[in-house]
Simulated scan of single mutants.
Amino acid sequence: MECLGCNLANKNLPVHVVFEDEYVCCFLDHEPFNEGHTLILPKKHVYDVEELDENTAESIMKASILLSKAIKKLFNPDGITICQNGGVFNELTHYHMHVVPRYRGQSFADFYSDNEIMIEDEMKLKETTRKLIEVISELNK
């Protein structure tokens, strides 16, 4: 596969998966805005939101709800921002949705600036992955 998003969603490249089903793969952003910042990608190649089939769209929304609950329980943010960038703003050229924990005093504009990006090391990403998987498992009982 030549698409970076397809390779990430199908785990052909290293990712920190916290949840997946038949249609989507959810993993930590490697340059998170805050700890717990997660991406949801369809396993099948889709470029923009209007190309999503019903099953994949439903799976993305269910995953966003599950991830939001897990992130709230684990990190106690003041809120969650869920977004996706389409068209020329889709840097992966593959549909993806961000689920971002946020705290008071954080400007959403900072999400797109290099000033606030928190690049996490591999050990931190592994620990966050472990914690999220544990909480998601509890929520799915």
Rank of each mutant, 00 (worst) to 15 (best):
N90Y: 13
F89N: 15
G79Y: 07
G87Y: 01
K124F: 05
Q84F: 09
K131S: 09
I82D: 00
I82V: 14
D110N: 11
L41V: 10
T93Y: 09
Y95P: 06
Q106K: 12
V88T: 10
E35N: 04
G105D: 01
H16A: 11
E138A: 10
K44W: 00
H98G: 04
E127F: 04
G5F: 07
E120Q: 07
V18F: 02
Q106V: 05
K11H: 05
V15T: 14
V49Q: 05
K73Q: 15
Q106F: 04
K72V: 09
F111M: 08
F33Y: 14
T56F: 13
T129R: 10
I117C: 06
E138R: 11
L41C: 10
T81E: 02
H30I: 14
F111H: 03
A63E: 09
G105N: 02
E31K: 11
L67G: 12
E22A: 15
D29E: 10
G79A: 13
H30R: 13
S137I: 05
M118W: 03
L4S: 12
S113H: 02
V100R: 06
E20Q: 15
E122H: 14
K141V: 13
E51D: 07
V46L: 01
D48N: 15
V99K: 00
G79N: 12
P32A: 05
K43M: 02
E127D: 14
F75S: 12
N12T: 06
F108P: 05
E138L: 08
L8F: 10
S137E: 14
S107D: 14
K69C: 11
C83Y: 07
V15F: 01
S59T: 05
P32G: 11
V88G: 00
D110F: 06
N76V: 07
C6M: 08
G79R: 13
L13N: 00
V135D: 03
T56S: 12
R130A: 14
D114T: 10
H94K: 00
R102W: 01
A63W: 01
H30K: 13
I82E: 00
L39E: 03
T81A: 04
L8P: 03
L66P: 04
S107F: 12
F111T: 03
H94I: 07
E138Y: 12
V49G: 01
F27Q: 07
V49L: 11
E138N: 12
I40S: 00
E58I: 04
I71G: 01
D121H: 10
E127R: 11
Y112E: 13
